[in-house]
Write a protein that binds this DNA or RNA. Structure first.
Length: 319
DNA sequence: AATGTTTGACCTTGC
DNA sequence: GGCAAGGTCAAACAT
């Protein structure tokens, strides 16, 4: 089973990768055997084993079954560990304000009624389409996010500022919209395969729709480079930011930051007591307590420490 | 010279 | 196979 499939796992650039971990079997067994069909089941493996040993006794079959169960369990644990690591990476590296838990990983291929929320006083609106799997049911999956931004109608540049560096590689006039659609690639990292399409809304020319395909495999350029004032001043800083909206303050833990820091993004519309909360939250005492609490939570999670140890070991040369 | 943009041609995909 | 539309390439051009 282990030899068959630790596959159907996604790399950062969304291409499927076959991870043949070869758990529970000697390295020199049938190296040329076909692998990674994507649909291979335990029954397939069992039947192929039967094919090789037609005269198998009941005892042998039971032993094989027990081994199968054991290896299945090992596979399950490994899969969980990889998924856990991958999930953390994805949530840290999502573009521009992502990182919240996904609402659903089994979204319909046809975009459902997207969420729409007011973002700030500029009239910006955001549509989020979560996980658009391919219709063929293969293991390839590309995250698609749509962002609508209100801009000056006289501005024809089709530039949506999101903090990332983009390189334009094409422009096309589409059938259903008189305004051209611009195609951008992420220019920050050559290996980053995120793409962005920008086009004015057909209904409202003052609105541009930016569609992001894929996820960045690098930190946010502005966030990675920034050193918040409280971090540079030597105070006990926390890798998180606080944003406030009508529904209350949101504390975002950003593990991609070097040092990080607490920033009150917008307290203009906050209630007076909310401002007080913000001051308390931004205080060194609170930050220290927050760090300690986070450390306790993380180190107390056996899954996390196991995954972290495995990740560190993988980074060691010649491991 | 290096880097980014423009734009016509070409490729891919679905019908 | 033909067609249409979207997506990408790459030479020319601009900065």
């Amino acid at each position: 089973v282990a030899e068959a499939c630790m596959c159907c796992f996604w790399t950062m650039d969304t291409a499927p990768v076959c991870l043949d971990l070869m758990v529970g079997r000697p390295m020199d067994h049938e190296p040329s055997r076909a692998r990674c069909t994507g649909t291979r089941t335990e029954a397939d493996v069992a039947s192929s084993a039967c094919g090789r040993a037609p005269s198998m006794t009941n005892d042998e079959a039971k032993i094989l079954e027990a081994k199968l169960a054991q290896v299945s369990e090992e596979n399950r644990k490994l899969t969980e560990m990889i998924a856990y690591l991958y999930g953390n990476q994805v949530s840290r590296q999502s573009p521009d304000g992502e990182g919240q838990p996904r609402a659903s990983t089994a979204a319909s291929p046809t975009p459902p009624a997207s969420k729409k929320r007011s973002r700030d006083s500029t009239g910006e609106a955001e549509h989020v389409d979560v996980d658009s799997p391919l219709s063929n049911g293969t293991c390839r999956r590309i995250k698609v996010k749509k962002v609508c931004t209100r801009i000056d109608p006289s501005d024809t540049s089709l530039v949506v500022k999101d903090g990332y560096q983009w390189r334009k590689y094409g422009q096309k006039v589409t059938r259903d919209n008189p305004s051209p659609r611009a195609y951008f690639r992420c220019a920050f990292a050559p290996s980053c395969r995120v793409k962005k399409k920008v086009q004015r809304s057909a209904e409202d020319s003052s609105v541009v729709e930016a569609t992001y395909e894929g996820e960045h495999n690098h930190p946010h350029p502005t966030r990675a480079g920034e050193l918040p004032s409280c971090a540079t001043q030597g105070g006990g800083s926390v890798p998180c930011s606080i944003s406030i909206n009508s529904s209350g303050p949101t504390i975002t833990l950003d593990l991609t930051k070097n040092g990080g820091g607490v920033q009150v993004v917008d307290a203009g519309e906050a209630q007076p007591d909310m401002k007080k909360v913000c001051r308390e939250v931004a205080s060194p005492e609170f930050q220290r307590a927050l760090v300690e609490q986070m450390a306790r939570e993380l180190t107390g999670d056996q899954k996390f420490t196991d995954a972290l140890a495995a990740a560190i070991l993988r980074k060691l040369p010649d491991y």
